[in-house]
Design a protein around this nucleic acid. Structure first.
Length: 927
RNA sequence: GCCCGGAUGGUGGAAUGGUAGACACGAGGGACUUAAAAUCCCUUGGCCUCGCGGCUGUGUGGGUUCGAGUCCCACUCCGGGUACCA
């Protein structure tokens, strides 16, 4: 009786759907476990074999935890807002909601075929008003919150206003961007608009003029993580810097907590490192420099206050607000020319010309607060307006950028740090600056002789005592720009009154996305929502026309899964108290500095509000590796229609052409299929080797144009979902990137057939009762042990190998015993759930294998009476010696000494030592 | 430039200081079959050898250790992140 997956698999998928086998309900009597996949953006291309890799892994773990008695939450949904559907809408006029719904349907069909144990009753779609109502709601809460740096948490804005009424800006330690140190009287004297304007500097969601990444081709701004090398991550269009009024989230208030939280979560070091670098904490000091002949002061941030005596000039960013005020009349023309050149340069030009030194002297001089020295003030684009204070003190002796600037413009270089063991030298002869923090101070007044670290502390203390500066921590992290000039996103629950933004009352949510006649900006350059009819409140106030970015809907979706149909709240406190946070999160590492950072911020904010009970959303994170394509090539002899086989191609001048991988099996080209592929190949000639045409191959990204896309559907059709699931795991470690190669799937399919034959003979199902032999028990328990250990370290590829070995060995033993085969079915069920259900039922069970208890192994059954010791001489394996496992070490040594095979290796040598590791190895040291 | 990974047969990979190459794919040989499919058996890192067996071997060069693919140092190459971040 043959293994017929085509009959088995659909039947069990129907059973699971009908019986709601994987529905999760809160049950305080059982421990919870929350397994989550990063939900997909449903693209028009559908799934390729790379997508389900992580889904299969998480599904295996979810099923495993169910067998272990956990109440498992394993939901799935769709990150449904996104640019491709909108670009398609612009081209065709089709509403993105239609395209998205169609794509979701296709995704669902594909996902369903793979036998995942999702609780589909909890599905969410970010573009569904019932979902984005809570995205909008969270935005409103952010808008009405401020960050208290003394309590280190977000608080309601009313509380801040109450403080302002009584004690002004001094009354609160608030994270803000307000330059005015106003009093209570100032505050109380302000009108409504004045107060709103001031509060904008404190809100966690705020509207402000900021430098943004503007992408003209997409017609929208982008967040920093959506830009790669000066191009948009989606679409690869050029990005410019532009100053625009935009919504932002004050994620910078959470910089330190986002950094600290990393130490408490189980994520890969590489992702944590990426987040640490992105947050970019640096410790140093701000120092105030007065300016000769001006009232203003230049504030500088430096991580090396110890080198203050080595400063020989200062540099402002070209956009720095003081530039216009301090520039000397004779330098004005040149400075303005440089500033406007720098401003108009695209981000890409600037990045491409990083090594080119440029700058202009302003004619002004800053005063070194330590020694009163006058330092010429320059502007240069190597100083960035957005980092620190946008101004630096230049220490060319100990900073390589300042060094090359000084060399280029002939500015003085002074040594203030000497490397350990070295003597001071003349910087004129240096090839580079000495940037290391190892060394002793020289030419630095009261700092002389101190080592760098002590000098940093001493300088900060000195500056603080005299109110010339303060110690300060600076972060590279920028606030997240939260508005997009696009149609297909969440509308902001915001209207404008006297030019000031106000949020809609919560009972008016969701504010639904309105229909528009076109998905393009208006003639006046306003976003598409400006085309909507009646886009205003009932009172006639205009509504916001920007929409939210892609990460808005994905930042809190894991919370909504806990209570997805709640119409009164984001989620109930009870549901959150039970499911708490995600225990295992699997997804791609491309979200390291985007989604994974925004989600942590979102969660911490809701934690501050007391809405969620855990301050980190994802306890354990695993990044599955990418599956790369394996492209096949044919070699056409130049100028002909003749193709030469791989190993003969060097005899000719050839061009390599991608061929569809479906026409290639084990690198052999199906000539007939190739001739029919395209008309121009119908008359193609071939030069064969050994009667075959062998294709070349290369590992590349999976893409349509390379003809190397493998869809899971074809493989499910041919081998079944269980085989595909096993094979994707068998390919290699989950976290590794690896090329897709269909060749190996036959081996897994053979395994499935062998497994089937353990339970069946020609006539049909055939399993015997009766006591198992010692050998059979040993095979089973050895397998249980290895499978359990490997699954706990997410080593799914070795689990599949172990199951193969088990089936091979039971086959050799002709074992058909129920007591052996039944636990095997449970071991297998997380990986190949359909066949497991089928066999489980045939074994006489009336309920799903999902509820079966995961088997445990008995150590006693694994004990061997003897062990075949590998015996090495000076580390080289020479022979094996079978000895009882309980033989004491001295007896083993004696056995080795007297073993007949040993004589050959001892001839003319004496034994210095015998190392015995019981149960492992024997090593004889001779000389 | 800086930070983080990685390098093992023809291929994917296994081996958490203790028998390198498990498990598969591919390849070669054989059995069964009218034939094919399916299935089963044998061989398969390299070199020397009829064989027994030996030598060699985890990117390169050193080191630690009775013993290193695994730990340490230096380097090469590949992949990813980031980049005038003061």
């Amino acid at each position: 009786m043959d293994y017929n997956f085509r009959e088995i698999e659909p039947r069990w998928r129907k059973y699971w759907a009908e019986h709601k086998t994987y529905r999760a309900t809160e049950d305080p009597s059982r421990p919870k476990y929350y397994v989550l996949d990063m939900f997909p953006y449903p693209s028009g291309a559908g799934l390729h074999v790379g997508h389900p890799l992580g889904y299969i892994a998480s599904d295996i773990y979810a099923r495993y935890m169910r067998h272990r008695g956990y109440n498992v939450l394993h939901p799935m949904g769709y990150d449904a807002y996104g640019l491709p559907a909108e670009q398609y809408a612009i081209q065709t006029g089709t509403h993105p909601a239609l395209t998205t719904a169609r794509n979701i349907e296709r995704y669902r069909e594909q996902l369903d075929k793979l036998g995942f144990s999702y609780d589909w009753d909890r599905e969410v779609q970010t573009c569904d008003p019932a979902y984005y109502q809570w995205t909008q709601w969270t935005f409103i809460r952010l808008f009405h919150s401020w960050y208290d740096t003394s309590l280190d948490k977000a608080r309601p804005l009313e509380e801040l206003e109450a403080i302002f009424r009584v004690s002004g800006a001094q009354g609160a330690r608030a994270f803000h961007t307000c330059v005015w140190d106003f009093t209570a009287a100032d505050w109380n004297g302000l009108n409504e608009n004045g107060r709103q304007e001031l509060l904008m500097h404190f809100r966690l969601a705020y509207l402000a003029d900021t430098w943004v990444n503007w992408c003209p081709a997409l017609g929208t701004v982008l967040a920093n993580d959506e830009v790669k090398d000066g191009f948009s991550e989606r679409g690869g269009h050029p990005v410019e810097r532009k100053r625009m009024k935009q919504w932002s989230l004050r994620i910078t208030a959470y910089a330190q907590r986002l950094l600290d939280g990393l130490d408490r979560i189980d994520w890969s070091d590489s992702i944590k490192e990426m987040q640490r670098n992105w947050i970019g904490r640096s410790e140093g000091a701000t120092v105030m420099f007065s300016i000769e002949g001006h009232e203003e002061k230049i504030e500088v941030f430096t991580t090396r206050p110890d080198t203050l005596f080595g400063a020989t000039f200062m540099v402002l960013a070209p956009e720095h607000e003081l530039v216009a005020r301090i520039t000397a009349p004779e330098q004005r023309e040149e400075v303005e020319r440089y500033a406007s050149w720098a401003r108009n340069r695209s981000e890409r030009e600037r990045m491409a010309e990083v090594k080119q030194v440029s700058g202009v002297f302003t004619g002004a001089y800053g005063i070194n607060p330590l020694n009163g020295e006058a330092l010429p003030v320059w502007i240069a684009d190597y100083v960035l307006a957005g980092y620190g204070t946008g101004a630096i003190m230049a220490v060319p002796g100990h900073d390589s950028r300042d060094f090359s600037f000084a060399r280029h413009f002939g500015l003085p270089i002074r040594q203030v740090v000497v490397a350990p063991g070295d003597q001071p030298t003349d910087p004129a002869g240096w090839e580079d600056s000495y940037d290391s923090k190892e060394g002793k101070m020289v030419n630095s007044g009261m700092l002389d002789g101190m080592d760098v670290k002590a000098a940093i502390r001493a300088t900060i203390e000195y500056l603080e005592d005299r109110q010339l500066g303060t110690g300060r921590v600076n972060y590279r992290l920028r606030d997240a720009i939260f508005s997009r000039q696009r149609y297909w996103g969440e509308p902001f629950p915001v209207y404008y009154k006297d030019g000031m933004p106000y949020t809609l009352p919560e009972d008016q949510l969701p504010l639904e996305l309105p229909p528009v006649d076109k998905y393009l900006p208006t003639e006046s350059g306003d976003p598409p929502l400006a085309r909507a009819k009646n886009w205003h409140t009932p009172e006639g106030y205009p509504l916001e026309t920007n929409t939210m970015p892609g990460f808005a809907g994905s930042s809190g979706y894991y919370l909504r899964y806990m209570d997805p149909r709640n119409t009164q709240a984001y989620f109930s406190p009870e549901a959150n108290a039970y499911w708490r946070n995600v225990d295992l999160y699997i997804g791609g590492d491309e979200h390291a500095t985007g989604h994974l950072l925004y989600s942590r911020f979102w969660n911490k904010f809701l934690y501050d509000l007391g809405l969620v009970c855990e301050d980190e959303p994802f306890r354990k994170l695993i990044n599955q590796g990418k599956i790369q394509g394996r492209s096949s090539f044919v070699y056409r002899i130049s100028g002909t229609n003749t193709f030469v086989s791989r190993n003969l191609r060097n005899d000719h001048e050839t061009q390599a052409l991608h061929v569809d991988i479906n026409m290639v099996h084990n690198d052999e080209l199906d000539l007939e299929a190739f001739r029919q592929w395209r008309p121009e190949f119908s008359t193609a000639g071939f030069i064969l080797e050994d009667g075959k045409y062998l294709c070349g191959y290369e590992v590349e990204k999976m893409s349509k144009s390379k003809h190397n896309v493998q869809s899971p559907d074809e493989l499910v059709e041919r081998y079944g979902a269980d085989t595909l699931r096993l094979y994707e795991m068998f390919l290699g470690p989950l976290t590794d990137h690896k090329p897709w190669d269909t060749n190996g799937i036959e081996g897994v399919f053979r395994f499935m057939k062998k497994l089937w034959r353990l339970f069946h003979d020609e006539a049909g199902f055939s399993v015997a009762d009766g006591d198992p032999t010692e050998a059979e028990l040993k095979v089973l328990h050895k397998t249980i042990k290895k499978v359990s250990e490997d699954i706990e370290r997410f080593s799914f590829n070795t689990v599949v190998s172990t199951l193969m070995i088990c089936v091979n060995e039971l086959g050799d033993l002709r074992c058909r015993k129920r007591t052996i085969l039944e636990p095997l079915v449970v071991l297998l069920s997380p990986y190949a759930p359909h066949i497991a259900e089928e066999l489980w039922q045939k074994l006489g069970h009336s309920s799903s294998v999902t509820g079966a208890v995961f088997p445990t192994y008995d150590e006693a059954l694994l004990q061997e009476a003897s062990f075949e010791y590998p015996v090495s001489f000076n580390g080289k394996l020479r022979f094996k010696l079978n000895l009882p496992v309980d033989m004491p070490v001295p007896a083993i040594e004696e056995a080795v000494r007297t073993a007949p095979q040993a004589g050959k290796w001892l001839e003319g040598l004496s034994i210095r030592k015998i190392i015995v590791v019981p149960g492992k190895i024997i090593n004889v040291v001779v000389s």
